[in-house]
């Protein structure tokens, strides 16, 4: 599928809003979930370090 130009690719045959609206929200959703997972792991490890660090330095 040859798009001819970057502008044509972005325009997506006039459906750019819908196609990119779908793909960007999907990418954002996945990125946000990954960020939340990483943040949760860090928070949990900090909690555990505090919990166990305090008991057995």
């Amino acid at each position: 599928m040859n798009w001819g130009s970057f502008e044509a690719f972005v325009a997506m045959g006039g459906y750019g809003l819908y196609v990119w609206g779908s793909y960007l929200v999907t990418a954002a959703g996945l990125a946000i979930e990954i960020a939340l997972l990483v943040a949760r792991r860090r928070r949990t490890l900090r909690m555990l370090a505090r919990l166990h660090g305090a008991e057995r330095p």
Binding site: M1, W3, F9, M12, G13, G14, Y15, Y18, V19, S22, Y23, T26
Partner: peptide, 21 residues
Amino acid sequence: GFFVAPTDATQGESYRIIFIH
């Protein structure tokens, strides 16, 4: 989805949402 699949006869480019939908 964007560089191999052709344009759809009736829907044009909007059908490309199908891949993630």
